[in-house]
Nucleic acid binder design. Structure first.
Lengths: 239, 239
DNA sequence: GGCGAACTGTACGCTAGCGAACACATGGGG
DNA sequence: CCCCATGTGTTCGCTAGCGTACAGTTCGCC
């Protein structure tokens, strides 16, 4: 995989009007996003916003006792660091790379300048934020009502949608952290999916064999989120 | 309680610069917000945004099977209908009055005009939205990790903060819907709080006797949300 | 003033997921 | 090439909360 991927692999960047694109290009700084890299810390000030091209980033809340839960996931469809332009400049959550890859970043000050032009950039970012809000809301619902198996399916599907392959480099331990459950629970649920022939895996590497099967097993939450992203950001998905 | 309360009882309205305030005033339409009133439906187009003064509104997701879960709660500190200005004009959730009261509404077209002036109104609304996002995220975390007792405390505290009295008119059934749990579970948890001398209740009417006690019993989620609202919207709380 | 609907309390068996403890597998680095 | 750190599988007892069923209580209304 090339270190320098195309910025237009990020759907938000790709959706920029030409004027903005030309203006931003020189300032877009390519960055490697290795597994576990923390893009911002809970309560920390944002220095950059990130546009992933091939990585997946989790927005994670870590509790006082060390337990954690994923709030939302961002891939090449979005931007990491919305609290910058929403106001406040920080959030109580952490952004951490969940699947290694590359991306681009933009200085916070520049981002703010662009946002404050109050043109298409602002509207694009707010629509994306609205989609992200839906994902968070649905995460709350899912955490309340659905089984671990269903949630695992949802999580795999959301991750797949944000990747280019059907293979996830991801240990069960990591997945457990994201879902906020025990690793053993993930082992068990993954075992079910394996038995059902939907996935295959070897030590930190999950291959999805039957995407439709996963969709049938998961709860409605996945479809709700997917539909809302498609509705709010159609241009981005056209690519 | 007067039908026409003061619009400035709503913190967002109160925080408007004078010019905006003068401009909006003639268009602010007083509305009664009786228990159970639906301000917008899942996927429905927004015709107005609402500024509550004395009511509490729940953002609720209702699942295909009829089960539900509260995503966030809005009182006189906020606005109902953020998806209007965020883009998209609808969300998959429902907004329903959880505690009766009054408020004001503004036509969607007017709200958009004001938002698109891209001045202080825009920034105020986005900061509020950021606070709301935190609440949603923390709801997700809380649903994952905390006990029903803790969540009930959190919920009571969040509701108290959005009311003017220490008395909630609210059946256990309703609370159960909000928390996405069984009514019996709420009965039990409420019984604990009653025994501990923290609350009192008579048939759909809960009186909080010991607020500090609730704060000690609840999980960290309440404090996280409270702190973030205070941080993001300090002017509003000064009143 | 008492009837009935709405609200609250209690009980019981059941299940998903937890916590802890440990055995097994695997594959990359010395 | 083999060692051992890292990842995975399995087991067991435990608990919170579910679903169901039903009894008791309160209050508004006729």
């Amino acid at each position: 995989m090339a270190v320098l991927s195309d910025p237009k692999s990020n759907h938000l960047l790709a959706a920029l009007p030409d004027a903005e694109w030309q203006r931003w290009l020189p300032s877009l700084e390519p960055v490697a996003l290795p597994l576990g890299k923390v893009l911002y810390e809970s309560g920390g000030k944002l220095t950059h916003v990130y546009f992933s091209t091939t990585a997946i980033v989790s927005l994670l809340y870590v509790m006082e006792n060390g337990a954690s839960a994923e709030i939302a996931v961002v891939g090449n469809e979005g931007i990491v660091g919305i609290s910058l332009f929403m106001g406040g400049g920080s959030t109580p959550s952490r952004a951490i790379v969940q699947s290694a890859g590359h991306g681009f970043r933009l200085k916070a000050s520049l981002m703010m300048e662009e946002f404050n032009r109050a043109g298409p950039v602002l509207h694009l970012l707010l629509r994306y934020t609205q989609a992200l809000i839906t994902q968070m809301a649905q995460t709350a619902v899912c955490n309340r009502h659905h089984t671990l198996d269903q949630q695992l399916c949802r999580w795999l599907l959301l991750s797949l949608d944000r990747l280019h392959s059907s293979e996830l480099v991801m240990t069960q331990e990591l997945i457990a952290n994201m879902l906020g459950v025990r690793r053993e629970g993930v082992t068990e649920a993954a075992g079910q999916l394996h038995k059902a022939g939907l996935i295959r895996y070897q030590r930190g590497r999950i291959t999805v064999l039957d995407r439709d099967g996963l969709e049938q097993r998961t709860c409605e939450c996945y479809a709700v989120v997917k539909k809302e992203y498609d509705r709010l950001l159609p241009a981005l998905l056209a690519r």
